[in-house]
Design a binder for these strands. Structure first.
Length: 249
DNA sequence: TTTACGGCTGACA
DNA sequence: GTGTCAGCCGTAA
């Protein structure tokens, strides 16, 4: 005679049956991404997790990482959330995200990062300020290092304060590749960093921006003024751009 | 409760 | 210009 409880417990160790509703079990799918295949885990509410896919078919280490972090079961799924493919191929597309379980600070950091337009970059310090903790710059790096959904929350657009690209979960080279793919002039950024330029203003408007700000890029060479610090720009009579917000006024 | 740890930053040699 | 150090701060163990 079989003990029903033992039998049920044994069932827990088996792969989740495909008849389980999506609200209980999350599903993973492998998709091509801008720097190689990715594994994406989705709940009924949206994308929860994205990581580089292993070179082999053995996806178990990635799934184990997911279970460890979220304590939720996951099974293969053919379902691709709306907007995910376009988001991964550089087109407009914003799949729903399920950021359940992240702390308030983490959410604020991810939200701020998600507001950085494609083709532009912002420093860690900017993210910290936008997240409401201007001094938690280092902690922003920690949060982004464990971004559950890189590429979708574009942490590759967050750079060091001096303009250097900085580190990235998928490697510094991937960071540069992703930025180039979005039309960012990476070499130009590095040249600015080397020159100590952090802000760029227009002497016709008296406004300073981050160099990648859409407004900064329209300033003609004759009217361009580069600054090393915001204080220097202010001393010269410039005010921060209200779009890229190098500072709050 | 305490400690250690980072995708950082600014100051100083 | 480059290298080092201390400070910073939210998490996880």
């Amino acid at each position: 005679m079989t003990d029903p409880l033992l039998s049920a417990l044994r069932g827990l160790a088996e792969p989740a049956p495909t008849t389980l509703p999506d609200t209980v079990v999350d599903g993973w799918v492998r998709l091509p991404g801008p720097v190689g295949d990715v594994l994406v885990v989705t709940s009924s509410r949206g994308v929860r997790y994205l990581r580089p896919a292993p070179g082999t078919d053995d996806v178990e280490p990635v799934l184990a990482g997911y279970r460890d972090r979220f304590a939720r079961p996951v099974r293969p799924s053919g379902r691709v959330p709306r907007g995910l493919r376009p988001a991964l191929t550089g087109h407009r597309g914003h799949p729903d995200l399920d950021l359940d379980g992240v702390t308030d600070f983490e959410r604020a950091v991810l939200d701020a990062t998600a507001r950085i337009p494609a083709g532009q970059t912002r420093p860690y310090g900017w993210v910290a300020r936008e997240a409401g903790r201007p001094r938690a710059v280092r902690a922003v790096g920690t949060v982004l290092a464990r971004n559950p959904v890189p590429l979708l929350v574009p942490c590759h657009r967050v750079t060091r304060g001096d303009g250097a690209l900085g580190q990235y979960m998928l490697g510094a080279e991937a960071k540069a590749t992703l930025l180039r793919g979005e039309g960012t002039d990476v070499e130009g950024l590095e040249a600015l960093a080397a020159a100590g330029t952090r802000l760029r203003g227009s002497d016709t408007t008296g406004i300073v921006c981050f160099p990648t700000c859409h407004h900064a890029r329209r300033i003609t060479a004759a009217h361009r003024r580069d600054f090393r610090t915001l204080d220097a720009a202010r001393a010269a009579g410039y005010r921060p751009c209200r779009v890229c917000r190098p500072a709050v006024d």
